[in-house]
Design a protein around this nucleic acid. Structure first.
Lengths: 111, 111
DNA sequence: CGGAATCCAAAAAGATACTG
DNA sequence: CAGTATCTTTTTGGATTCCG
């Protein structure tokens, strides 16, 4: 399932190679919705994600320049994450996904 | 990584639970670009996908009503796949993904 | 030709413990 | 608190074979 982004024939495949998996989309979306957040906040805002997955995905997102990481050298440590401009450019896609999810959810319940 | 769509708090997560993974997005996109296609055509149009993956994903997409399957009872068999209306409703998302991929691909080469 | 089933290898993900 | 490392389990994917 993991491709090399460079050998992707079509642009959709390229995008999916960069933002592949479910967690990354979700992390980006939560960073957009709730703004700059610390590691712990982010974890609390994303149900079911494990410690390992979150830190791993955050590292990869940072490598792709989709998010930025700001570390305060304190005890106890404090690290804030934020979307970069490149990360923000993915938001329209996520808004459509959110819309589609709303429209197609089987249960219509007042949220 | 596999969630139950029903227990997804947010709409983005719901969408990703339905259209999760990389192959599904790509299959839908290829069905849109090239129109109704037989199994073999589809396979040829999606680089790297294996027999097992394609048939597996097609079955799941059909269960979600995103694609339709039309079987001709002939020898040799012929089966055509097409997007449903629900499937087509995902196209705007894929167009944005395609756009984003174009904009962010490192190599600018005349395709 | 389309696809189901099997077996096996590889990768992803969870739990847990440890560190600055 | 944030992050790393290790170990184990689960999931995914590939190759192959058989069937309508």
């Amino acid at each position: 399932m993991k491709w090399n982004p460079d050998e992707c024939d079509c642009s959709v495949a390229y995008t999916l190679a960069i933002v592949g998996g479910k967690w990354k989309w979700l992390i980006i979306y939560k960073l957009w919705n709730n703004g700059i957040q610390r590691y712990g906040e982010l974890k609390r805002n994303i149900p079911h994600i494990t410690h390992k997955m979150l830190s791993q995905q955050l590292k990869e997102l940072e490598l792709e320049k989709l998010i930025s990481r700001n570390e305060y050298h304190q005890i106890p440590p404090k690290v804030e994450y934020a979307l970069t401009e490149k990360g923000v450019s993915l938001i329209p896609i996520l808004q459509l996904m959110s819309q589609w999810g709303d429209d197609n959810k089987p249960d219509i319940e007042s949220k």
